[in-house]
Design a protein around this nucleic acid. Structure first.
Lengths: 229, 229
DNA sequence: AAGATGTTATGATAATTATCAGTGTATAAT
DNA sequence: ATTATACACTGATAATTATCATAACATCTT
């Protein structure tokens, strides 16, 4: 977990995040911005922590989760670069309502929240930009949840595999960044049934499994299961 | 469905919505604001419609829903007064991704979206205020969905009854504003099972049922079922 | 008044999913 | 090296939920 000051001029997020900030003001923000690296498995944000910083992802993959009253985790969503990780509840609550954990080595850009808030308070265009990103991010999560909700076990597992293949790695072969249990926590089914379903897909020659490595052999059929299962 | 121009000075939403708008500018907004009344059952927003207006609820109750690929509805959430109905996707999309339907006679305040956007673009405090309301509203929906997701049939039905009793009507006896089928669409179970569960609660003397009228006779037990079922 | 439609209701049965029990295997801890 | 500990896997059985069939009742239409 290392800290380095990044050069905002080269940052690919600059155009996204700072499109409404003038160069003079930009330097200001840049001075207080730090990059932080997290290893796979590191907890970036702990549910309940006071919200003091504003985070966004530069590289890697994280999971958003919440632990239920019995202590079991529910995974809400996954975030890729350019997703605004800390946007959920940043502007509506004093404490985080979700945890954020790196499921791949992850680089996060960190700004002091007060500075961002002050900035938003004085620069309306910036605030508007932020707002549409918040809106988009939460909208996506809501839609995703609805999609999963109407599927059965097999459709849900197929959906997750296609999610990682199409939306994260853009490859038909990839290493699953999460355990079977975490898939279960995401889709709201039991670990055993996730494992069983993956085995079934393997027996039906829809996928090949080598531990965490997944190869999607019959994407059409997997897509079909996701759509109608 | 009638249109009347409201007097913003008396509007109870003024403090919430316009707390950052000066009186001189306020008049401006007020001039273009109209109130619209909807009858129970009226569709206020249709999924797919272009977003031209900014809505917020003054009175009544609405449901947010989305129809799945097979044409069946999924209910996402219910909105009461002060909830910002049109906030979902207003600032992130050109078209509504959800439908909004009155489930009780409802009064909605309507502003032209461009005016609100322009206003947000020039008044940062206003934009920030809007942002925290968006954040809060979607956060609430996400949390609600997680809560429902981890419950079984009986827990989900109990949760819905308690929701209407505690969060909407603040009474132990109330008229259900939605059908059994709509409860099913909300909690992601079948209509038959919702009906069966209500009958069970009745047989167990937890509730009394007179058609749409529900009386919660044993709230403690219902709460228990909601929490642990 | 008669027919069409939608809601509430119940029962029997089928399908889906969870739970429990047990195995092996890899990885971490001491 | 050896005990923990977590993960992946499979089978048998139980619990939960969906589906199908049927009926009573209300509402709306004509």
């Amino acid at each position: 977990m290392g800290d380095t000051k990044c050069s905002c001029e080269k940052c690919q997020l600059k155009s996204l995040f700072f499109s409404n900030i003038e160069a003079s003001q930009m330097t200001n923000i840049c001075d207080i911005k730090i990059e932080k690296q997290f290893q796979k498995g590191d907890v970036i944000i702990n549910e309940g922590d006071p919200i003091r910083e504003f985070l966004y992802m530069k590289e890697g993959l994280v999971k958003l989760s919440k632990s239920d009253p019995e202590g079991k985790d529910q995974i809400i969503s996954f975030s890729k670069p350019f997703d605004f990780v800390s946007l959920l509840s940043v502007f509506s609550s004093r404490n985080y309502k979700y945890s954020v954990t790196a499921i791949e080595n992850t680089t996060v850009c960190i700004l002091d929240l007060e500075v961002v808030k002050n900035y938003a308070n004085t620069n309306a265009m910036f605030a508007m930009d932020l707002m549409s990103h918040i809106s988009e991010a939460t909208d996506k999560i809501l839609l995703e949840n609805l999609t999963i909700k109407r599927k059965h076990l097999k459709g849900r597992v197929a959906f997750v595999l296609l999610y990682f293949s199409d939306s994260v790695y853009n490859k038909d072969e990839f290493e699953l960044p999460i355990s079977r249990r975490e898939i279960a926590e995401f889709i709201g089914m039991t670990t055993e049934n996730v494992i069983r379903t993956l085995s079934e897909f393997r027996k039906d020659k829809i996928i090949k499994i080598f531990g965490k490595d997944i190869l999607i052999a019959d994407k059409k059929r997997l897509k079909n299961i996701s759509d109608f299962g």
